[in-house]
């Protein structure tokens, strides 16, 4: 715990750690204000295909809708923000030369790496929680509460979740979002353990995430077969909590696959780092 405290103190003493929180705040505030201003237009375009057959009443554009709407962009911007810190976690010590003071201390490399990894996960969880709280609190202030009515793109169906069920589902969805983002953190952490500078791990992680996202969405037979094996596919497991009935099995499978990714990536990082010669 001392080492974890040490790492957390260092991480949260650097101003650049807060860039991500600032960027997230900007995205959420801007999105919610714009949505508040153009609420009628958004609802109109969303419900266009249903308006002939259904009468939709009540506060559709509420905090929960806005939150799920913004959450859909989660796998684009949060991975980048997670990478900024997780990709820097080990390699920045090599760049700054502080690694020499750190590794000549009694704690083993594995213990130091564990503390750093825990800090990266802690930061990732903190970032997603900040995002969640900001989305919901600002959403409630600007749009109020209500039932969640959603239309999934490309599907002729509407999902209806009563207001009473939403807080729990939202909580589970954000927990799943944290879990999915830890894979990005683990990947960035692995690259960070291998590298001597921070740029490589950040660019490397983003390149992997972007490639997997693109491959997973290409309408080609070859990639469709591979899609279930991409971690980016399972990163959307949080969406399962906003189906009419929660598909626990699918969510569980994705969670296990993501967990295995985390374990595998951290294991490789550990092996690499324990064997590494510190020449910097």
């Amino acid at each position: 715990m001392t080492l974890f405290g040490f790492e957390a103190y260092k991480t949260f003493s650097r101003w650049r750690t807060y860039i991500s929180f600032g960027v997230l705040a900007l995205i959420v505030v801007m999105t919610e204000i714009v949505m508040r201003v153009s609420a009628r237009e958004i609802i109109g375009s969303m419900m266009k295909i249903f308006q002939r057959d259904f009468i939709i009443a009540g506060n559709i554009l509420n905090a929960w809708f806005i939150t799920t709407f913004i959450m859909n962009s989660l796998h684009f911007h949060i991975p980048f923000l997670v990478t900024l810190v997780a990709g820097d976690m080990v390699s920045s010590e090599a760049t700054a030369g502080t690694i020499r003071f750190l590794l000549i201390r009694p704690p083993s490399r594995q213990r130091i790496l564990n503390a750093k990894y825990l800090t990266a996960l802690f930061y990732t969880a903190g970032l997603v929680m900040f995002f969640a709280v900001l989305c919901v609190v600002l959403g409630l202030a600007l749009f109020g509460s209500g039932d969640l009515i959603m239309h999934r793109l490309g599907q002729f169906s509407v999902v209806f979740i009563p207001e009473a069920e939403i807080p729990l589902r939202m909580l589970l969805a954000f927990a799943a979002a944290i879990w999915s983002m830890t894979v990005v953190a683990s990947l960035a952490f692995l690259f960070s353990a291998m590298a001597e500078n921070s740029i490589g791990p950040i660019i490397g992680t983003m390149a992997v995430v972007i490639c997997f996202l693109i491959f997973g969405n290409l309408p080609l037979h070859f990639f469709r077969h591979l899609k279930p094996f991409f971690f980016t596919t399972h990163m959307l497991l949080w969406q399962g909590f906003f189906d009419s009935s929660i598909r626990w099995l699918e969510i569980g499978q994705s969670a296990v696959i993501l967990g295995l990714h985390n374990a595998g990536l951290f294991l490789i990082a550990s092996i690499v780092y324990r064997r590494k010669d510190i020449k910097s």
């Binding site: 003493s13 030369g97 502080t98 003071f101």
Partner: peptide, 12 residues
């Protein structure tokens, strides 16, 4: 010990 340059956390 000190190994080569003494590099510290500059922000602390």
């Amino acid at each position: 010990g000190i190994v080569e340059k003494p590099d510290f956390y500059l922000f602390l």
